[in-house]
Design a protein around this nucleic acid. Sequence first.
RNA 1: GGGGAGGUAGCCCAAUGGCAGAGGCAAAGGACUUAAAAUCCUUCCAGUGUGGGUUCGAGUCCCAUCCUCCCUACCA
Length: 834
Amino acid sequence: MADYNFKEIEPRWQQFWLDQQSFRAPGPGDDGFDASKPKYYVLDMFPYPSGAGLHVGHPKGYTATDITARYKRHQGFNVLHPMGWDAFGLPAEQYAIQTGTHPAVTTAANVDNFRSQLQALGFSYDWAREIDTTSPDYYKWTQWVFKQLFEKGLAYEAEIPVWWCSKLGTVLANEEVVDGHSERGGHPCEKRPLRQWMFKITEYADRLLADLEDLDWPDSVKAMQREWIGRSEGAELGFVIDGVDECITVFTTRPDTLFGASFCVVAPEHPLLASFVSDEQRDEVAAYQEQAKGKSDLQRAELQKDKSGVFTGAYAVNPIFKDGDPRQLIPIYTADYVLMTYGTGAIMCVPDGDERDHQFAEKYDLPIPKILDDNQCLCNSDFLDGLTKEQAVPKMIEWLVANEIGEKCINFRLRDWLFSRQRYWGEPFPVLHEVVDGKRNGNVKLVDDADLPVSLPILEDFGPTEDGAPPLARAEEWVKVVDSDGKVYEREVNSMPQWAGSCWYFLRFLDPHNTSEAWSAEAEKYWMPVDLYVGGAEHAVLHLLYARFWHKVLFDCGLVSTSEPFQKLVNQGMVQSFAYKNERGILVSIDEVEGDEGNYTLIETGEKVEKLVAKMSKSLKNVINPDDVCDEYGADTLRLYEAFMGPLTTSAPWNPRDLPGVHRFLQRTWRVFDSGFADAACDDIERGLHKCIKKVGDDLEAMGYNTAIAAMMEFINLATKSKIDLTVEQGQRFSVLLEPFAPHLAEELYKLCGGSDALAQLPWPSYDNKMLVADTIEIPVQVNGKLKAKAVIAADADKDAQQEAAELAIAGEINGTVRKVIVIPGRMVNFVVS
RNA sequence: GGGGAGGUAGCCCAAUGGCAGAGGCAAAGGACUUAAAAUCCUUCCAGUGUGGGUUCGAGUCCCAUCCUCCCUACCA
């Protein structure tokens, strides 16, 4: 009898897997590739290798994909299960600025730490395919992909007002600014006009929206992407400004309400505003514009209950009314509830139809003409009277087109993607600006493929420059390029945002050592699309939308064979932690609290605190370190616990009290094998094993990891209670079932019961349906749906025999006439009595 | 305001429309032990947030309602 010694077992098998390359996934063209096997590509969202190391949230998703990867190998798939590092990014750069250490140095150290942490958890990655987005071998191809997008005409430079964060010394994408503050760090941001690289993602808006339909993705993520793309159908129409030779164009989803349009509002930033504002109102409007400029979008939103605005002194002509009609001239206001960044930055206001317009009209005492009746049908609207919205909109559009006033229009909330950053630690652009007489002349040239990668120059000073120019501008020798024909160029000194590397990494995994192409067409055709992609919901929009966009472009270029990269997506739930809240509602650090069973107090003061669930955070000292868990219980226990916490998609707090439970299961399993083996199989155990094989297989298909583990626990409980040991052969079959979940122990057990093959490649055991049911079963007998008795029947009894047995069991309980008998074979019998 | 996911035992979590319980935690009792730990055995505990409906039969389907969590928001 020996103990379950995970500390000895786990490192030994980890080394074995590395030495044997047990999880190498040969692809087309590689030695050992078997083209006859089906493929399965299971991918994790690769991590940013932070200095803090792995968090227990990471292994939740990684364990799930690893279980599935290992299961698919047993089913005979060629499984591609790779891991890499999304290693460009701000934290490494900021650390570099603070310490003077080059980001490449800290990144390499962090990567080493992450890799060894992941290997200590026994994940079955093909480490030969490891990639690092900051390696020149990798970003060479990121630059190459950029060139493909550029050559498709999808990249352009623009001088646009962008979010500028002076603290970070960089511009940020709209998506990276929340409530006027940087998403990372929470620093205040302001709008500044700067020359930037943009991608025309809006050209793909329709397809990005439509193709969501066929994806096996969570509804919540699809909904978020739909909202982000924000397609809305309506019309654009022109309003001529009275007495001025200008026309403002408005976008509306309700052109049918034009009869009720009693004023117009333009955004304070509207370019035409200055041309039509009256002299009397000029100062007031200018003051309002100045005030609006200083407001963040958050501040604008905060004021939503109290709208503000200023009359411009100008009037627009409502085109639906004839000359002389008193309703024809409508005042134009400027107000910050209209955003320049959406639609045309100008709206027609229909206070009877739109709540916001109504508020504004009431505040500024503007007319509110009634155009909708109690049934929300149009009234006072001439040729639209009595029509519903659905009927009236096309009719009005028809009228607008016929009178050359406007046309049908589809608007998207999606904006073009701001793709440049003023940072050091990112991919350089493969772009040269032509310089004549010391000045850029506006001509842009791409770097030849043969000259890729454009390597990141080594700098001493990574911080932003005084004048806001990117840090790369300091590398003067690097910036200046003289062509063979004598032309002088300056390199682009902006760098790409962190999204770049993650937009196509799943393609590089297919063929990571290819030095002549980003990936081979053969490998792409075989492995793509990703069959299962698991990651956090925080990437529901940005990463997943950007990656889909690049992929569609590559598809249009004929470089990939699928129009979508990720067929099935699953969001793992968050691993939270317990926290404590004092009476003033403030969260307190976990080490200041004592007590249990619902009574918790502060150690120092005795003040009562309330237990709740919150995100893990350093300040609450409730962060769980996977290394500590591994040290105390082992990697198999950690894996099993993460998979057993509940469904993968559910968030749940880390509960240290539950860890011993799964650890005990592994110990019990060990003892079942360690107690020796029987010569002949026990029938009960054999039946239990068949049941277990079926349940674990079915659950794995549905990613029901927690219930699969429960089934294995059930079997081990059965085997523990049995006086008869497993046979060697039963032990081998169970080892295969356990291998995806607790691979180290499974390898050890397989060896204990005499296994000599490569466990990871063994076929998944089969089960016999006949072994799943006992000879006789007990079924409920109901009267009017209420349980009255039980009957014992043969498992294969036919309907009549089952009813007969039920009648016997219920004899005397039935008072009344039997109207109907419901017999569900093998399930139950119900007598309907009146 | 809009969208998404949920409410089952003291806790986490199961249950193709068919006996509410698979599994784990916690609790209680017992066996083993000089004792403790570990281990093993046994036991306790809910009628599924609420109100209707469909059905022979509803945790499961439909409608309404309450609560929780997440996302999003002057998007015209």
